[in-house]
Amino acid sequence: MIGFIKKDLLTLKQNIKLYAVIFIIYIALAFYGKMSLMIVLPIFSVVMMFNTFVYDDYNKWNSYAATLPNGKRNVVVSKYLTSLILIAILSIIVIITSSIFSFFTNGNIIDMSVFQELIYTAIATMVVNSIMYPLIFKFGIERARTIIFVLVMVFAFIGSAVTSYFSSNYLKFEKIITLFKNYYRIIAIAVILILFVSSYLISRKIFAKKEF
C-alpha cells in the first residue's frame, strides 16, 4: 500500500514546478484581496488527484496494479489515503502562507479564524472527493469527468435554489437551527466521516468486481 501511495506522490512530484507557479499566482491574487487563500485547498487537491487518475488511466496502471499482491484493494485504499495526505500537506502550506500574510498585515502570527475556515474547507473537499472517487472507479476517469461536470451543474442549481428558499423562509427554520447550533461541528465531522468511509467501501466493492 505504501508503494501505491508513493506512486501517486512521485507522479505529482514530476509536475511540482507547474503546481508551484500556479500556487504563486493564487497567493498573489489572494494578497490583493481578490479571493480567499482557502480556495487553494479544494482546487489543488481535486485537480492533483484528478491528474493521478489520468496518468493511471493512460498507462493502464490499474490493470498492472491488479496483478500485484493485494493490488485491487491497494489501488482503492491508496487513492483515499493520498487524498487525505494531500489535504494535510496543502493545509500546512495554507497555514504557513496565511501566517506570513497576517504577520505582514497586522503583526499577528496565528489567526485562529484561519483554522476554522480551513477545517470547513477540508471537510468540503472531502465531500467532493467522496462523491467523485466511486464514480471514477466505476466509469473510468474519461466518462467520470463528464458525469462529475453534470453533477456540479446540478448541485449548483439545487444549492442556489435551496439557499434562496432558506433565506426567504428563515424564520421557519430558526428553531431547528438553534437546536443544532451547539452540535453542528460534531454533526458535520460525523457526517463527513461516514460519507468518506462509505464512499471508500463502495469504491472497494466496485473495483473488486472490475475486470482488466
Partner: peptide, 27 residues
C-alpha cells in the same frame, strides 16, 4: 509471481528510479 503485460505499466512520467522506491513498498 512476476508479471509483464502488454502495454500495462507504471505511469510514464515517472523516473526509472521511482520504480525501485515504489516496488519496495509493494513486494
Amino acid at each position: 509471481i512476476g508479471v509483464v503485460l502488454d502495454n500495462m505499466f507504471f505511469p510514464e512520467n515517472l523516473k526509472i528510479k521511482d520504480i525501485n522506491s515504489i516496488m519496495k513498498g509493494i513486494f
